[in-house]
């Protein structure tokens, strides 16, 4: 692992963490369990696209674990991990069939699967299978927030390309 790569990952983890903690401080616009913008997702999507699955997974893992520690919500760790892993599982194969101009699609898929993962974890923890009726609402929220963070990632990518000469 070369130093350039480690530095890049550390930097991105720091950025993701900052966004995550900042978002945790402001009240969610719609205070419903599982519904939030997920701005840190911008970093994950961008990393999946430009750095590859391994790097993206490590950044996500580090962000989720450190994020839970910082916000003091260890219960949210399980929940973020479930969502995060399923999200990665959807984004990694998608990346292969998407062009540079379609990063936002990856983000929508990621957000939708993130919410499916969250529901599965919530069902497992509370042992309440009927929570599945919650899924449609979370999917709608996933598409909308995924679109938002995806477009952010898209713009970010277009600017960064010139900056980093990637």
């Amino acid at each position: 692992m070369n130093i350039r790569r480690i530095t890049r990952m550390a930097l991105l983890t720091a950025i993701a963490l900052t966004i995550f903690v900042a978002e945790a401080q402001i009240p969610a616009p719609v205070p419903i369990y599982g519904v939030k913008l997920g701005l840190a997702n911008i970093v994950t999507v961008w990393a999946v696209f430009l750095l590859g699955p391994a790097d993206a997974a490590m950044i996500l893992l580090a962000r989720v674990v450190l994020g839970s520690l910082i916000t003091g919500q260890m219960m949210a760790l399980m929940y973020s991990l479930g969502g995060g892993l399923l999200c990665l599982c959807a984004m990694i194969p998608l990346r292969k069939v998407l062009t540079d101009r379609q990063i936002w699609v990856c983000s929508v898929a990621g957000a939708v699967f993130h919410n499916i993962g969250q529901i599965l974890v919530a069902i497992a923890i509370t042992r309440t299978p009927s929570l599945v009726v919650y899924l449609p609402v979370l999917l709608v929220s996933g598409v909308i927030t995924g679109l938002f963070t995806g477009l952010c990632a898209q713009f970010l990518h277009e600017r960064m390309r010139k900056l980093l000469r990637l």
Binding site: I32, Y33, A76, A122, T126, T128, S130, V133, Y134, V137
Partner: peptide, 22 residues
């Protein structure tokens, strides 16, 4: 923070307490 609910669309979940109101 979720506030009042009156239908099945958005159940209240308190994950840390494993409590669900549906």
């Amino acid at each position: 923070r979720q506030g009042w609910i009156s239908d099945e669309v958005t159940p209240i979940v308190c994950l840390p307490h494993r409590l669900v109101i549906q």
